[in-house]
Nucleic acid binder design. Structure first.
Lengths: 196, 196
DNA sequence: CGTTCAGTTGACTAAGGTCAATTCCCGTGG
DNA sequence: CCACGGGAATTGACCTTAGTCAACTGAACG
């Protein structure tokens, strides 16, 4: 008997591949629901054992630590996957920490369980490919933005399109980190733009 | 009868997946050898029909054009794959141009031919996944460098490890573009470092 | 030899980083 | 209801570094 709690995940996966019941039943036994209170860590730096999450509710950020300073480089919103992907696929300790910015509700499974499906199911292998491609597209676009646009232009980029959520729901000092600048600079950029 | 010209490609693919003769024979009919003279384009901005290349000899760069200026963001060396990957997987016109920096010799095939193999072969689908993951890893590391390091630190990063080839073989004004700065700034950074 | 183009250097400008003070916002407790 | 505390955001002063424009040097090539 399928658990309706997991349906949002099934729908999200179905945006990538056609999923029949047999395919789904390969994954479903590995799923669990998980609640994370605000400020707790989903992934902690140094951890090897990797979980993948699907965010039902709330939002999270991930950050790298350097000289004791946290550099937030990504945000997660409901309806999206959350993981220290790089650490999972390379099976090395995570260099980043993923923190719940609000109380969060997720569906989680171990990345190893998905990897096992890669071996036995072409369909799931395809899912793995498409997820990796999707990720690569996002990273490439982000990188091009960092190389070709000024901080001001990058900020303007957040204002429209599908990235508005970041402006609307993320505290400014995290946004500045995402843009690769300090909170002070972002404040000045905003002031500069207002004068026009 | 297998063509020994294609062996280096087979070996390169074998670093990602175990490849038996049957698997290989699925791809081999799609392969061609191609020579590109210095300065010619392997991929041109706007082109949709996508080829993938495997560099046997020579090196290439890819660049985006913005305000009539070329921004070089990646270099390719022998033994590696060359493609406008993003354009190929999204099947949209390439936003970047790939140019031969020296006379080049490649093995090429149409990305569509590989995509067809994804459908019929789990092994090739896995190859597709691993390539995408490999690419994502590289992009993530590059992005983190851009967000967390200064231009000077990024330059120092090129000096050691597996990226030395870039310093040794790429003209400086392309390297500066790769680092996200102007040629003038890179020259100053180098001067600054020499004084220590 | 002269032409060309990459790389360096100088003078100046613009923009982000740093440190510190101040203001604003919000939640909590008196 | 108001006063207070704390963190976020803004603002100011100052410093550092990258961008820009232009002049110069040097090496490669015809």
């Amino acid at each position: 008997m399928p658990d309706p709690v997991f349906l949002p995940l099934r729908n999200a996966i179905s945006r990538f591949i056609k999923l029949n019941d047999a395919d789904w039943q390969l994954l479903e036994p590995s799923l669990r629901e998980k609640k994370l209170p605000k400020q707790s860590h989903f992934i902690t730096e140094g951890k090897v054992e990797q979980e993948v999450g699907f965010l039902l509710d709330g939002n999270m950020r991930h950050y790298y630590t350097r000289d004791g300073e946290e550099k937030t480089t990504y945000f997660y919103f409901e309806g999206h996957f959350v993981s220290s992907y790089l650490s999972a696929i390379t099976n090395t300790p995570s260099e980043l920490t993923i923190e719940a910015m609000t109380d969060c509700r997720l569906i989680v499974f171990h990345y190893k369980d998905l990897q096992k499906l890669y071996d036995v199911s072409h369909t799931w292998e395809r899912f793995g490919r498409l997820i990796a491609e999707y990720l690569a597209i996002g990273l490439e676009q982000r990188m091009v933005g960092l190389l070709m646009l000024s901080p001001e232009e990058r900020y303007l980029d957040l204002l429209d399109g599908n990235k508005q959520k970041i402006i609307e729901r993320i505290p400014q000092h995290y946004v500045s980190s995402y843009l690769g600048i300090t909170p002070v600079s972002l404040s000045r950029i905003r002031a500069r733009l207002l004068k026009k």
